[in-house]
């Protein structure tokens, strides 16, 4: 994967497959690390699978015998001097956390996170998704439940609404991470 936004898209696909109704994505600058957390209330992962979750030949799917998503994330994060942790409780949900040194030259750039969120909403408008960006005292929170309330009578998939969401997230990224994540300029 070229950037973190593609990893986020990939992991959220797992949450959707796990029938999650609520998906929370958080990106925080914590000391010298960029911390990515994806939390869902899907069906969770059994202890047996969880033990080998980063093994590319472990998957719950039946269409193929490989599950590359988490294994690729771990490889990319560790290559940049970071680490990944997965916690899951069967029938409760799963939490994926990745810590990456912000200034490591091998850290993957954030990428087009706004496009990832936009397309996830378009693909499944029934789920509730939040995106939280945190850098010290600066925070930005996006919540599809709040948006749906504001646009009462209009689908969140509506083109004008989706374009607004795309721009809102992009502005938030620049505001919160501009100049800190060196790939994002103010």
């Amino acid at each position: 994967m070229k950037d973190l936004s593609l990893h986020i898209l990939d992991i959220v696909q797992n949450s959707i497959k796990a029938k999650a109704l609520n998906i929370n994505i958080e990106l925080e600058i914590l000391e010298d690390n960029l911390v990515l957390t994806i939390n869902d209330d899907g069906c969770g992962i059994s202890e047996e699978i969880l033990k080998n979750i980063f093994d590319p030949f472990i998957t719950t799917r039946t269409t193929r015998k490989v599950g590359l998503g988490l294994s690729l994330l771990k490889t990319n994060v560790e290559f940049a001097g970071g680490k990944v942790q997965i916690e899951s409780i069967k029938h409760k949900g799963t939490k994926v956390t990745a810590w990456m040194p912000v200034n490591n030259i091998d850290r993957k750039p954030l990428g087009n996170l706004a496009e990832t969120i936009k397309l996830l909403i378009l693909s499944d408008n029934s789920m509730n998704m939040t995106l939280k960006l945190i850098n010290g005292k600066k925070t930005m929170q996006f919540d599809t439940t709040e948006i749906k309330k504001q646009i009462d009578g209009v689908d969140i998939n509506n083109n004008e609404v989706i374009n607004w969401i795309y721009e809102y997230i992009n502005e938030g990224i620049i505001e919160i991470f501009g100049g800190v994540l060196n790939e994002i300029t103010c």
Binding site: I147, V154, N158, N159, E160, W164, E167, Y168
Partner: peptide, 19 residues
């Protein structure tokens, strides 16, 4: 920075354009 208040105008316009 965009605000959620803008969504009200978008809502009105979207309702028109849906037609």
């Amino acid at each position: 920075m965009k605000s959620l208040a803008e969504l009200d105008a978008i809502r009105k316009s979207a309702l028109e354009n849906m037609k």
